[in-house]
Amino acid sequence: MITAKPPRILSIAGSDSSGGAGIQADIKTITMLGGFAMTAITAITAQNSLGVTAVEALSPAMVAAQIDACVSDIGVDAVKIGMLGSADIANMVADRLEALDVPVVFDPVMISSSGSVLADPSTVAAFERLMRLATLTTPNVPELAALGGAEAMATRRVVYLAKGGDAPGDVVFDRLVRPDEADLEWSAPRIDTRHSHGTGCTLSSAIATELGRGVSLPDAIETGRAYVRAALEAAPGFGAGHGPMGHQAARQKYL
């Protein structure tokens, strides 16, 4: 059922000091789409459009305390998961999710837009539990390959959105794969820009916001894709590398 109140969205992810991705992009996206954003920060990063220069993960106990504080008082309608920082944090998050009955969107962040590694092999191995618990997992091309590809995902029988932004070509294809159902595919002309920092964070947060509102998964993906494209087109041009998108300007254009 679609609710009239702002959907309460909990983002469990890392902080991006430059504001283009991570928790900062999640808060902007959730807010611009009419949700109420809450956060459980998993790691602090020093990064900008040129790359990540330092990462410091928080303790699993601190991440758990943030989650518990939000859920026990404000409540939650959907969860978005991004960068986790360590295998211990990933497993703790899975423990917490097992006690919640809300939609979960898992963005299996492994590498930043600039190419920095954000998940070690033990953390990637811990993704298995989260994919089984998630309503939707949103890997890009290299992440899907690291997870074993389409065949391995079919064996896991998980729902995932294979994002095509990293694939070559003038048209971007995104494919929703669900066990025992026909695939759904979206396509759109590629937006030629280097200002694409935070696209994955933004998409997964947008989908989680719509799911928290009670929207169907295909419709939530439609909204998320449209919002990301608007944000790419509205990028302010900041940074010398993979610059941030225009979340606020996108809202003015899209909504």
Rank of each mutant, 00 (worst) to 15 (best):
V228T: 09
A43V: 15
R132Q: 13
A54M: 09
E151Y: 02
H197E: 10
Y160R: 10
A94L: 06
M83N: 06
G237R: 05
R225C: 02
A37C: 05
L136I: 06
R96A: 14
A90F: 12
R129Y: 00
S72L: 11
G22P: 03
R132M: 07
P236F: 02
N48M: 05
Q248L: 15
H197G: 11
L50P: 07
T3E: 14
A220F: 01
T45A: 11
S187N: 13
S17N: 12
G19C: 10
S11Y: 00
A188Y: 14
D95Y: 05
D26Q: 04
S17R: 06
G148E: 00
M32F: 12
A13Y: 01
L10W: 05
R194N: 11
A126Y: 10
G224Q: 05
G200Y: 12
L144R: 11
G212V: 09
Q47F: 10
G35D: 13
P236T: 10
D107S: 08
V71P: 04
A40F: 03
I74L: 14
K80F: 04
I81C: 11
I81V: 09
T45Y: 04
L118H: 00
A240N: 13
A99S: 14
G34R: 13
L144E: 13
L176F: 04
D73A: 15
D107P: 03
V159Q: 13
A21G: 08
R8E: 07
T209Q: 07
D180G: 03
S216L: 03
I30W: 07
G237H: 08
